[in-house]
Design a protein around this nucleic acid. Structure first.
Lengths: 312, 312
DNA sequence: TTGTATGCGTTATCAC
DNA sequence: GTGATAACGCATACAA
């Protein structure tokens, strides 16, 4: 059955016949117990509803499927909740998953460090936990944000607000840092009151977007730290009857699949989400395969600034 | 440890102490082997990138999480490929999942019927396989489509085209049937050349959308059988420099989370995707819990026609 | 090349 | 209440 060893063809045929007759199926659980691996990995992300993570997940899945020995994925949404993340970590470790792809919500550094030190196969994706030594698959959030804000400056905007998703993720911090750097290089003073914070769901983003539009005088432009922020802000802008970019310019992180289907067309930093999933999955498989524990490596994938009409 | 039976408090304390000291973790695999259930279910859908399935999945997950004994989900995308679906079915059954939520791609009626007859816990969601007796969680695709097309007729449109996703899903058939019925009732003759078929991904939808716009004379309105169709068509419309609804009206199945953030605002049938996930998960849990095999029931959840500006 | 015994880590059963 | 024992179904090592 396992295609292996020195089995006489006759015997093999007899076995196969018996299998067919009884429609026997080998028990994957017993198999896992004996071989001490399950052929299942975990993916803990914040929100599968976010197109970024949808693409990311598909990249993971497609890679895993192309393997000689297919792996399955248990998908877990944390909704940026460290508590929930911990629950899932426990659950998944109980299930004896072979590896984990994680977009850390922040916190849980203790468990994660312990896992890493134990050599448990793990890859961070989209974000990292600086204190935890694990392979990372990211983009250069700092440079990309700087590029985007520089573009806004070049368009003539000087009062550039920031709609910030308050995740406990280093990626967001990097994006804010890039924003500040771009302002600095342009000689534009940083103003704290041009930063509006928001929880990372769509409705909160809308509420915060409204708050941002209450700033007087109205900023010339807004940099949104991720796609949900952009979405919420655009809704607020439309509700107010404002026009983009005439009244206020908008640009943000994450591109939209429907960017060419609806108006206005958003200027954005496109992340290679699918590829990030692929790379993370490949890296994880390598780690699962080999017993040698190597130094954690960080992979930065390229982003792309797509200039469209909302940046003015 | 299992919170059970008549264990002396002292003994329990000693056990807990030992657990803490050795940081013992019970092996979920051995546990599954012995108890012959895994605490994991499968979800086979067509495409997690589709916001509909994203919401659906979250409904499943949230429900499963609220259970006394949390269940995990292995997520599988078939991309409407029956072959892939079969592969996943095999894999999941090998993994001895406790139950399955399935948006059938069409085909595989043999395996699925066998599973159903064996009493394996299973729920169809979004679509059904008429020949396979399994619980179903759906919407009334026929009635909803009829309502939508009737609305288009009431807006004065008579040449109403159809952009059809060619999945092998009864849901799409129902939507087409609803379209025909609405035309019929309005005394509008059905014209085969107003129907354009498309594979169910975004790019194909765009190509097919362009083909639809080549129809001369241009139809007054288009009914899109799902969200990707609408997206593709809108892209085609914008590329041609046409205006909606001035040049051509558009309405379709599935609402968009960004409907209020971008223009034009699409008239659409909103499906309760999250609730469908909840109901399916609850139903599945009942089936997993009880050994009695009952007649399959079909649950229809209500849709909502949201009239916005693209229907003219 | 084939057959057989052992153990993976649980839980359920049953004597104590 | 508690402790010992068998069995879940497979893979491995070793004997035949």
């Amino acid at each position: 059955m396992n295609e292996s060893r020195f089995v006489a063809p006759v015997t093999k045929a007899r076995v196969l016949a018996a299998i067919a007759e009884l429609d026997y199926r080998r028990d994957g659980i017993a198999r896992s117990l004996r071989r001490s691996r399950t052929g299942t990995i975990g993916a803990i992300i914040s929100d599968i509803t976010n197109p970024f993570f949808g693409d990311l997940f598909k990249g993971i899945e497609d890679t895993l499927q192309s393997l000689p020995e297919t792996l399955n994925v248990i998908l877990c949404n944390t909704e940026e909740d460290a508590e929930k993340e911990r629950l899932y970590l426990d659950l998944l470790m109980d299930k004896r998953i072979d590896g984990l792809i994680l977009a850390p919500a922040g916190g849980n550094a203790d468990v994660l460090t312990a896992l890493a030190n134990r050599g448990f196969p793990m890859v961070f994706v989209d974000r990292a936990l600086p204190s935890v030594p694990v392979d990372e698959v990211l983009v250069d959030n700092f440079a990309a944000s700087e590029e985007l804000v520089r573009h806004l400056v070049k368009q003539g905007h000087r009062r550039i607000a920031l709609l910030r998703a308050t995740l406990h993720a280093d990626s967001i911090e990097q994006r804010v840092a890039g924003y500040r750097r771009a302002l600095e290089q342009a000689g534009i003073p940083f103003k704290r009151d041009l930063i509006v914070d928001s929880a990372s769901d769509l409705n909160s983003a809308h509420v915060s977007g409204c708050r941002l539009l209450d700033i007087a005088p109205l900023p010339n432009a807004v940099f949104c730290t991720n796609n949900f922020m952009t979405l919420g802000l655009m809704r607020a802008i439309h509700n107010r009857g404002l026009d983009t970019p005439a009244d206020i310019a908008v640009a943000g992180f994450d591109d939209f699949p429907w960017a060419d289907s609806f108006r206005p067309r958003i200027t954005a930093i496109a992340q290679p989400a699918y590829e990030m999933g692929q790379v993370a999955a490949r890296r994880l498989c390598e780690k699962i395969g080999s017993a040698v524990r190597s130094e954690p490596v960080r992979t930065l994938l390229p982003t792309q600034l797509i200039v469209r009409e909302t940046s003015g």
